[in-house]
Write a protein that binds this DNA or RNA. Structure first.
Lengths: 239, 239
DNA sequence: GTTAACAATATTGTTGACACTACTGGCCAG
DNA sequence: CTGGCCAGTAGTGTCAACAATATTGTTAAC
């Protein structure tokens, strides 16, 4: 049916200075390959359900198959791929139910981070975002410039996690993002969602600027709860 | 300095019906070995900082070294061991700061699960625990029978996660428990903590029985927040 | 007696070869 | 023509030998 979507570039067979993947000099390490594949899966360069052949990947990255095997092991227990014994590995399809579960967890974890960040960072930290979530973001919404919208959104998210100073939460949120990245981009284009989300974020930022961590947490939770409900309402158009 | 604490039993070198570890028939699979080691680390049968030799483990479980290698890889990105290139693997020491981070995350995740469980389960589900957290637990506390105390505690926890019906949260909480198991047992014996925790849990159970998910969530959070504060106060005696 | 260089050993890291399983296509019987 | 059986093939799973690196032990010079 649907053909592979794997990029066939490079083929990097050479050894010295050969591996262009991951930016490392020398040949591609396990971490490099994991990162490369994680990115492809997150951006859906490889479609969900598509097969990941070990030999194929080994040839592309110019590494022995054993190393690919290790990579697939890591990707598997991160939940990004499914492996069936003697059958190979395929990119996980994310069930709608699973996405809801992810959103419930994401809500409380981001709520936590927002609260911690409010407590840890000097209030002026958030001035930048009070500004951005004002006129500029309004403009993006009006002009349907969702890419710029998401860039700011991501920047805010990263800043929060940075100031939350909790590596455990950061790690868990990362593992959620790498699975829901795609969904986020689809939710934001749903009718009225960007506008609504912007309003919710203004509440979050205002509370943070005011130093009220608890209020910020509640606002952030509500934001993600609403996002989930929008998703539920329009699920037919998303999945 | 401190010698190894590794159990030297079995040495199971035989192949057929040899691997007694993990309960599986035939030789030990990767999952079996991971589970066996996870358990040992959680129960501190292997001391933090102790070295895990590949050949040693391979000999003990009667499997090729490659398989042990895979196991160590899994344990590493679960955060249970640290691996230094060409030096080997050692059991992670858990820093006090890290434990606080884990508790912050655990608080919001268990809070979530308590709320979800209250929404999903029929109220009668919790009658059993209303009962248990009454007189029986009081008795355990009075008699310093912390083992029984923890058994009930664990049972309650499992029931909550079961009814929360959120595999994502369940998985994340598991990864927290396997690291903090030891700490839990040390907190509960701190002066007054068991009594205090019991009171907090009665509030949780009461709210759940009454079907008030939000109140139950708040109560559960408060419970873990207090546990964390107790830990902070007595940190010298715990770590 | 202490320290530095060197050799020996033990342990981790890497790889290609071999074994096994599941799919593909052809063949034959009904 | 259809359905099941069988062999061939492609791909995954397993392993044991080889290479690289760190640690330990030894010797000799200061």
């Amino acid at each position: 049916m649907s053909g592979r979507v794997v990029a066939l570039k490079a083929k990097a067979r050479g050894r010295k200075t050969g591996g262009s993947e991951g930016g490392g000099r020398g040949k591609a390490s396990v971490a490099d390959i994991v990162e490369a594949l994680r990115e492809r899966i997150a951006r859906q360069d490889i479609a969900p359900g598509a097969k990941l052949g070990e030999q194929e990947l080994a040839a592309e990255f110019g590494v022995p198959r054993t190393r690919i095997r290790e990579v697939l092991g890591i990707l598997e227990n991160r939940g990004l791929i499914d492996r069936i014994p003697n059958r190979g590995a395929v990119v996980s399809r994310l069930e709608l139910e699973h996405v809801f579960h992810l959103y419930e967890v994401r809500a409380v974890l981001e709520g936590l981070c927002v609260r911690l960040a409010t407590e840890n960072a000097p209030p002026e930290t958030w001035d930048e975002f009070v500004e951005l979530f004002g006129e500029p973001m309004d403009k993006y919404v009006r002009e349907r410039d969702f890419d710029s919208f998401i860039v700011v959104y991501e920047r805010f998210r990263r800043r929060i996690i940075e100031w939350a100073r909790n590596p455990v939460a950061a790690r868990m949120l990362d593992s959620i993002y790498e699975k829901t990245n795609v969904v986020i981009r689809r939710i934001v284009i749903l009718p009225g969602r960007a506008q609504e989300g912007l309003g919710e974020h203004r509440a979050v930022v205002a509370a943070m600027r005011a130093g009220d961590g608890e209020a910020a947490e509640r606002a952030k939770r509500k934001n993600l709860y609403n996002a989930k409900e929008t998703l539920r309402r329009f699920q037919k158009y998303v999945i």
